[in-house]
């Protein structure tokens, strides 16, 4: 289909969104991600039955935590897209990209850049 998605997005593959834990989402932000979204299968169609439903709840929990820290829970989202639905995947990617751009850089990333201007090990 040759559909494109913004090059600001880095994909991390997991066998099932049920594998995604709160700490994984937190660490992404801690390392300077401006936004994170989890893409799971459609609800009711999880190969492992409830993996995507668990992920949804963990995303909710992490959103609250990010709000508490002041990073902003709205930088984190969960989407459910059918594995065969390339156009929707591409659409969501653009939607998320636009949303995060509108929110601006994460305060964590800004500070990391300020404190470690010459440290190449931090990719942001």
């Amino acid at each position: 289909m040759r559909l494109s998605y913004p090059d600001s997005i880095r994909i991390i593959q997991v066998p099932c969104t049920g594998r995604v834990d709160v700490i994984h989402l937190m660490e992404a932000f801690q390392r300077g991600a401006d936004g994170v979204y989890v893409v799971g299968c459609l609800e009711g169609e999880c190969h492992y039955l409830t993996g995507n439903l668990r992920a949804k709840k963990r995303v909710q929990y992490t959103k609250q935590l990010l709000d508490e820290i002041g990073v902003g829970g709205d930088r984190l989202e969960m989407y459910n897209i059918a594995a065969s639905d390339g156009p929707r995947f591409s659409e969501v990617a653009r939607e998320m990209d636009e949303k995060i751009r509108a929110l601006g850089p994460s305060p964590i990333k800004t500070m990391l850049q300020k404190l470690h201007a010459d440290d190449l090990s931090i990719h942001v």
Partner: peptide, 18 residues
């Protein structure tokens, strides 16, 4: 698990303040 999450949250909260 909760220790790791708290550690991450505190680090970020501090970073936010520089």
């Amino acid at each position: 698990k909760e220790v790791a999450i708290l550690a991450s949250a505190l680090k970020m909260a501090f970073l936010k303040e520089g």
